[in-house]
Design a protein around this nucleic acid. Structure first.
Lengths: 360, 360
DNA sequence: CTGAAAGCGCTAACAC
DNA sequence: GTGTTAGCGCTTTCAG
């Protein structure tokens, strides 16, 4: 095709290959553009961006001006490639709709942003298969770190993770098994045990655990197991675990209460796998005229925002989602700069807190 | 420094520069490695990855085997650089803790993942300054698109956005002003008006609007304005707007009800800026013995998961956060492949739905 | 303190 | 159908 007919932009020589090609987006301002304008080389600009006082004040001036005038926006993709590692932290949670993880992701992202790290988010919907796929694409970004929820992953996922040589921190669970690399969380079994002990201390003997999707949510299942085990250890009759197939919502809690009323007469106290379920229980108790904690004591998990002001205020166990986020960030920062943190600091237990209010 | 003492790995010639340097992470398996093993060139591997049936079956076989044997994980950073545009969509919301945005982000990320696009998340905490910074780093990733919440941004942010030539879609708001590029949402003024009309139809005349952080949350403020304006238009006395300084929680709702009871005797109905506030109002009404809707009608906004099962079930307005997410995803996909969508399709109104239950 | 040079791993023309 | 060739925009030795 004869290009001579095309009006060339005058003196633009065709040597060196194509004229600066116009891709679908107008060409970005590059570091080279800045360098040219400032009368220095691009590597000096690069240096300036990284350590401003490593260049002479004069050059620094010029560069700063050029940066400003051109409205330079760095290209982190190029930077990541050149530096063999991007400033991305990939975070995979079961569900972002879940207030627990939302809180953690929020605090994590705040902390990481201060360090110039970006959060790339994925949610697995409690599926190990989905999680594995997510991990695979996460790795494709050569992330600075990868954050996972829980300790159980598919075998392939674990292999992927260990062979990638990327710092990985697992959060929101501790004790179920050894972490791949680092972990921040707490024991869900211990949470269940705390609830059981709390009820036992008040003299309740006929207990039950109310949960939703226990077969998928292994952490909730661990709380249930901890609850049952501790009750038994304390010599109480073995509590029933009642499971709802749908996600944990107030609606599920209300239905669960109905089942419990119908099938477990004489029940004195219920532990709920989370505060939303407990809220539904509270609602349904009101409707049925069962007084809380008089007729039935209830304890939740999560200490969500409504829990302090419900009727009655909900006794619950607080896991500190934001603390988890901050600690995860700390571990990531620690492993970003130099080597990995010392053995002893690679697992941090954020514990849990019993918040005694009026429901049980 | 004399390197001759170092045991060289035998025949490794030093010509051509450094021996394959070992960075902090063991060298990844590259496309070149795969190509070598499969006995083809790297561009054939690249082609195979993109369009498997564009290469001969024989070569395809070999490549597939090599891919598998080596455990190849593509480097999307390099790919993004070469292709002049990464497969990242940057999403900036005011707060990920907010159930509305969590829902949208969840559906958005599900849709986008199916298209091989990653969500990079940022939250501005309702600060335009923070948002601007977030936009700046977002742009540094040469994203396939950028998703923002609301229509108001700092001047610098708008400039950044328009000059970047990246598809941008603003969500969760419509009508306040023209979008930068595309928008998916609904009118918050209309939501407020719907609430006012709903109350008017039932014969209530003494109304109030209960909100939190109205100076920061412009969309909530728009709902308040719409509510007041419509009430006035219908000939009712101008409703008071009561604002709470802390974030919108049930606790805030409870306090708001207290203020309203003390200062606005004779009040018949309140519209709340979201369901969490309405829930707090319900709780506080119970404590004070004010019956809902008998003594006071209440309407919320959001239709959160507990709203259908509270006492009484909450009348509310549903914004469809997941629909917004899906529509945003659709626009992004549409602008990813070819040009931008036709003018008429660049703004999509997801509307709102009045959900009449028992509270008002 | 500054610049030249050599890629990072991949994509995309463009030949063959 | 497949290989060759140029980079994408930046970081990073390594000289000077």
């Amino acid at each position: 095709m004869d290009r001579s007919a095309i009006k060339s932009d005058a003196a633009e020589p065709e040597v060196g290959g194509r004229v600066r090609r116009q891709r679908r987006k107008m060409q970005r301002v590059t570091m080279m553009d800045v360098a040219n304008r400032a009368g220095v080389s691009s590597s000096t600009v690069s240096l300036y961006l990284r350590r401003p006082d490593a260049v002479s004040p004069a050059a620094g001036q010029e560069i700063a001006q050029a940066l400003e005038a051109l409205g330079y926006v760095p290209n982190l993709v190029a930077g990541g490639l050149a530096a063999a590692g991007s400033r991305v932290v990939s975070v995979i949670v079961p569900s972002i709709r879940n207030a627990f993880f939302a809180e953690t992701v929020a605090s994590l992202q705040t902390e990481l942003a201060a360090e110039g790290l970006q959060v790339m988010l994925g949610h697995s919907e409690y599926s190990e298969t989905d999680e594995e796929a997510l991990i695979r694409t996460a790795l494709a970004w050569a992330p600075a770190a990868i954050v996972l929820t829980g300790l159980s992953h598919s075998i392939a996922a674990r292999k992927l993770l260990t062979s990638a040589g990327v710092p990985v921190v697992e959060m929101w669970e501790l004790g179920a098994q050894a972490p791949v690399d680092m972990a921040v969380g707490f024991s869900h079994t211990a949470v269940g045990a705390t609830a059981a002990r709390h009820f036992a201390q008040q003299g309740f003997t006929r207990l039950a655990f109310l949960g939703a999707r226990l077969s998928q949510d292994r952490r909730a299942a661990a709380r249930a197991e901890g609850f049952v085990a501790e009750a038994v250890r304390l010599g109480l009759p073995e509590p029933q675990i009642i499971n709802h197939p749908a996600p944990a919502t107030a609606e599920a809690g209300a239905q669960l209460l109905g089942r419990v009323q119908a099938n477990l007469p004489g029940l004195q106290a219920v532990a709920c796998s989370n505060d939303l379920i407990a809220l539904g229980v509270l609602f349904e108790c009101q409707r049925r005229g069962v007084t809380v904690p008089g007729d039935l004591a209830v304890i939740g998990f999560g200490d969500l925002s409504f829990s302090s002001t419900s009727n009655p205020p909900l006794t619950t166990i607080r896991p500190s989602g934001d603390l988890i986020g901050r600690e995860v960030a700390r571990l990531i920062k620690a492993s970003a700069h130099g080597e990995r943190p010392p053995e002893a600091e690679r697992i941090v237990d954020t514990g849990h807190l019993l918040v005694e209010r009026k429901s049980g």
